[in-house]
Amino acid sequence: MSGGYDVSLFAAPPDAHLLCSVCYGVLRQPVGLPCRHTFCRKCIVQWLVRQRTCPCCRREVRMKQLVLRHTLRRQINRLKVKCKNVEEGCPVTVPLHHRRIHLLSCQYEPAPCPHRGCPAWVARKDLSDHGERCPHGRRPRARGAQLSAARAHHDRPGRRQEEWRRRWRRRRASCQLLLAGLDRSLRHLRRATRRLQAQLAWLGGRLEGRRVDDRRGPSA
């Protein structure tokens, strides 16, 4: 079982109450039991499939008694974690729930070479240097063609095009961050919807049981 976050991921050692007693990792989707012990949701579900007792105190537990600890989850999401590319030299630390967003702009994140046919993946900060010496780049042209191209480049409004490129890159990065946030919100909304559906089904069963009891009452 490995439902929790790896402890080495965090910039500082997490407190003991944030660790799962089953996988010994930092709690991921923490779930509480009636006995007040907390575990990763994945860990405790797999445990209860085999034996229906608390892993700590051995008290009998049923699957429907699991309760999500939202406050504890938000606390863990605010903990600082190291970048995935820390071994490559990235010194950045960010809150856990911003880790994927940071990778969209991390200069040490591998990215594909922009030249067609090149299979290389290099760090973003090295893309420019790699592109200059990449064998899949544009072939050198004759001197006359180079002079003509340089003259044409001087004649056209290159500064304006470069400014447009910079604006497009900034807008693309903003859109990626927005999409990542919307995707995270959509996952939260789907989980909340499933919980509400389960609660409504449970309430419907209780109401149906009361109706049956009311019908049997006068005859008894």
Rank of each mutant, 00 (worst) to 15 (best):
Y5G: 01
Y5T: 01
S8T: 15
L9R: 13
A11I: 00
A12T: 14
A12V: 11
A12H: 08
D15T: 15
L19K: 11
L19V: 13
C20M: 11
C20N: 00
S21G: 15
C23L: 01
G25S: 06
L27H: 03
L27K: 01
R28W: 05
Q29T: 03
L33S: 07
L33W: 13
R36L: 06
F39L: 02
C40H: 07
R41S: 07
R41G: 04
R41D: 05
C43M: 05
C43W: 05
I44M: 02
V45G: 00
Q46G: 10
L48H: 01
R50G: 06
Q51W: 13
R59Y: 07
V61Q: 04
R62N: 10
K64I: 02
V67G: 02
V67N: 01
H70Q: 09
H70E: 02
T71G: 08
L72M: 09
R74E: 09
N77Y: 11
R78Q: 08
K80Y: 05
V81G: 01
N85Q: 15
V86N: 13
V86T: 06
P91W: 07
V92I: 05
T93H: 00
L96D: 00
H97T: 04
H102Y: 08
H102G: 05
H102F: 02
H102E: 01
L103F: 07
Y108R: 04
P110E: 11
P114R: 01
G117Q: 04
W121P: 04
A123Y: 03
K125C: 01
D129H: 10
R133I: 05
C134W: 09
H136M: 07
G137F: 15
P140A: 14
A145G: 10
L147C: 09
A149D: 01
A152K: 07
H154C: 06
D155F: 09
P157L: 00
R160S: 12
Q161C: 02
Q161P: 03
W164A: 12
W164T: 10
R165V: 09
R166I: 07
R171S: 02
R172I: 01
A173C: 15
S174V: 00
C175S: 11
D183S: 14
R184F: 05
L186H: 09
R191P: 04
T193E: 11
R194C: 07
Q197R: 13
A198L: 10
A198K: 04
A201M: 13
G205P: 08
L207F: 12
R210L: 08
V212D: 14
D214W: 15
P218R: 12
P218A: 11
